[in-house]
Amino acid sequence: MMWVDTVVQGILLGGLYALFAAGLSLVFGIMRLVNLAHGDLIVLAAYVILLVVSVLGINPFLAAAIAMPVMFAFGWLLQRVVLNRVLGEDILPPLLVTFGLSIVVQNVLLEGFTADSQRIGAGSLETASVAIGPLTLGVMPLLTFASAIAVIVGLNQLFYRTALGRAFRAVSDDPVTASLMGIKPASVFATATGIAMVVVTIAALYLGMRSNFDPTIGPARLIYAFEAVIIGGLGSLWGTLAGGIVIGVAQTVGAAINPEWQILSGHVAFLIVLLIRPRGLFPRSHD
């Protein structure tokens, strides 16, 4: 029974990793940009939510709703002013620019909020749980998982049901031809990064409510997100959720064997998948 519990906890944890990964996957899918600052942007969003909560004294979910447009604007500007300049055949400039950005964001947060760990207080929700059969599940992990599914459904709807989604797919396939059809790739990219930052804000909300965070934890979140994307197979959001679940289960099972192995077993699971299925569990035919 203990093992069933461990695995279920791992699956729910996978929801959090899928949330981390969705934004990364979105940006990569549309503009082939790997944002090395992704983890630090999640932490930045967590601090924005924390700031709103402590200044206005409101519920964290409301605070996240206020933080979303702020982060959208930040992402839009970041893409417009900085990242659009480095997109191209050469992978070196975007990697180095986002790596620099990662260091800047981390240290600006250190300067502004010190290295102390913080937490977004969620009141009684933090400890609430429901009994499902013989299992007792935390409301917060369930909510995280449900949000991950909602985000993936929402993004898929956006991609395949809206004009914006059509523009995303068009610039992803061929930005030059898309621009001949009256689409401005630069502005589509900016909107995409803005939306990715909205997803990042949702991820940050759960990150901040579930555990302590400080300015230095960003790179580890980037690595989990990246592992989830690769395990799932590039370009598939549902695959990303599966990837998150693989990491989550590997971590909780590893931790059940020896608490010091938690993080390591997640990485080892990633390497094993890479060994057996280098293109991930659910690869697309192209890319």
């Binding site: 082939r32 090395l36 990246f226 993080i263 390591l264 990485h267 080892v268 390497l271 890479l274 060994l275």
Partner: peptide
């Protein structure tokens, strides 16, 4: 062997993962 399976930009994060694995192993 692992990192060369990852294309382009993903190679970068792949090397980072390996570094994490080595660090966590050495800490044991």
């Amino acid at each position: 062997f692992f990192a060369f399976r990852l294309q382009g930009a993903y190679f970068a994060i792949g090397t980072w993962v390996v570094a994490e694995v080595v660090r966590l192993s050495v800490a044991q």
